[in-house]
Amino acid sequence: MQGINITITVLIASIVCGYLTAFIAGFCRLSNNIILRKLTGLYVEVFRGTSLIVQLFWLYYALPILFGFDLGSDFWAGVLAISLNYGAYMSEIVRGSILSVAKGQTEAATALNMSSFQRMRLVIFPQAVRMMLPEFGNYLIQMLKATSLVSLIGMTDILYYGDILRSSNLSQAPTVYLLVLIFYFILALPLIFLTRKMEGISKKGVASG
C-alpha cells in the first residue's frame, strides 16, 4: 500500500497546523481585545458547528471559485480543513485549561513582579499544558481518522488505493477493506499508547512545560 506515505504526511502536517491553530485561537479568545476575541469566537463556532466533510468540500471546491485563488493543491485543502476544524475544537481545550489554573497563581506571579508575558510563560502555561495533554491525545486519534476523508478530494492515501484495488477485483473487497482498517489501527496504536501515557503524566504531575 503506497498510500501510507500520504496518510502519514497529511496526519503530521495536520497535527502541527492543528496545534498551532489551537494555541493561537485559544490565546486570542483570552485576549483583552474585544474584536479579536469575538472574531475568534466566530471562527470557533463556525468550524465546530459544521461538519468536517462539508468544510473539506467547501475549501476544495468552493473557495477557489469564490476568491479566485487556489490553495495550491488538494494536499493543502485537506490539511487546512482538518487543522482548522480540530484547531477550533482544541482551542476550547486550551482556553478551558488556562482558565482553570487557580487564580492565586496569577496573583502570586503579579506579586513577584513578573510581566504578563512572563506570568503566562513561566507560571500559568506549564500548569495548563498538563491539563491539556489527555484531551490532546484523544484528538490525535480523531485527526488520524479524519485523514481518511482526503481520499474524497482525490488524494492518493491508503483508502484511495484500497478503493482502486476493490474496483479492479470486486470479490476481494472484504480483504482489501479489512487490510485498510488494520493499517489505520496499526497507525493508531502508538497514538493510543501515547494518549495513555499522557494521561499518566498529567495525573502524576511531573509534566514539564
Binding site: 486519534i141 488520524l144 481518522k145 479524519a146 485523514t147 481518511s148 476523508l149 481520499s151 474524497l152 483508502l159 484500497g162 478503493d163 472484504p174 477493506y177 479489512l178 485498510v180 482498517l181 489505520y184 489501527f185 493508531a188 496504536l189 497514538l191 493510543i192
Partner: peptide, 11 residues
C-alpha cells in the same frame, strides 16, 4: 473507535 468511520462505511 480508532479506525475511520468512512472506511467502516465502505466496508
Amino acid at each position: 473507535r480508532s479506525t475511520p468511520p468512512l472506511v467502516q462505511l465502505f466496508f
